[in-house]
Design a binder for these strands. Structure first.
Lengths: 153, 153
DNA sequence: TGCTTTATAGAAAAATTTTCAGCAATGACT
DNA sequence: AGTCATTGCTGAAAATTTTTCTATAAAGCA
């Protein structure tokens, strides 16, 4: 499927606020309500729109501490990688985990309430996973930019 | 505001799918439709729910390349930091930018279509920002976990 | 040309959100 | 203890939105 200019605008709007009514969208896009409706349904069917989510303000629920953990495995066997990945997926503190190139194997984004909780996370959860070689953590000092909205090019 | 068990469940559901109807939510939570409605409105008023967004499948729109860039500034004056941050915010390829502790000053999550576009991003956009000391990039080999949903504890 | 598909519009139907009135429980204050 | 205000809930009604349906025009194609 190829996106035309209207689809791109529509996706941009929906990435900002997916609760806008089709009427609002229709006037922004100079289309009828039904046309907007059909376009959105198509984007959903094609899997271009993956899901609709509420974004929660993490600070407001006491999660003020963002940490990036870089992790090196002891060995790079398929078994070790798979095991590590399945364990990390289960950790609620880990919002993102990427297998990456470079000196370290994995980059994790971890969210906790404070340093104490982070220590607890490291000691009782992360480093109890087998075959971890070494870790290196960077603490977020400030969030400069953090968006879910992709610029459709 | 303190969240009770129902609020926490509600937030969990809404972070998975914010387009569920209040009727669906009311039956999952054993509440009336109006009670669900009022709770959601309160969470919005309090700013606990920040926004409602559509999540776009980046692969489907040709953005298959995720890169993490670590950046060191030449000097750490307030002026340099502020300038860098305001420039980086403007770059559409940058979805996340955190000022972090450790060897590097900033960690960026960059999304592009391919290596060529990444080279172009580095050469014509990122490294043209003044006062950058050095950069170090890690490419994503695979996405193990990547969620917007926070576990409400 | 004639046929099929695709995108659109407007109206009607179905479903959902939002408002409203009423009720019970809670806590503050006299 | 009694009164009052607040909070959260329910069910019904009103308002709005989504979804379906019918029809039409434009585009692609044999």
């Amino acid at each position: 499927m190829t996106l035309d200019a209207i689809d791109k605008k529509l996706l941009t709007f929906l990435q900002q606020d997916c609760k806008q009514t089709n009427k609002e969208l229709s006037s922004k896009l100079n289309l009828s309500v039904t046309a907007v409706y059909e376009r959105i349904k198509k984007l959903e069917r094609e899997g271009i729109i993956k899901q609709y989510v509420s974004v929660v303000n993490k600070e407001k629920i006491g999660l003020k501490f963002v940490v990036f953990c870089q992790i090196k495995l002891a060995q790079h066997t398929k078994e070790y990688l798979t095991k590590f990945e399945s364990e990390v997926k289960k950790l609620e503190e880990v919002l993102e985990c990427f297998h990456v190139s470079g000196e370290y194997d994995y980059l994790l984004k971890v969210i906790v309430g404070d340093m104490d909780q982070f220590r607890n996370f490291m000691v009782t959860k992360l480093t109890t996973i087998q075959h971890i070689g070494s870790t290196q953590s960077s603490f977020s000092i400030s969030e400069v930019k953090n968006t879910t909205a992709i610029n459709i090019r």
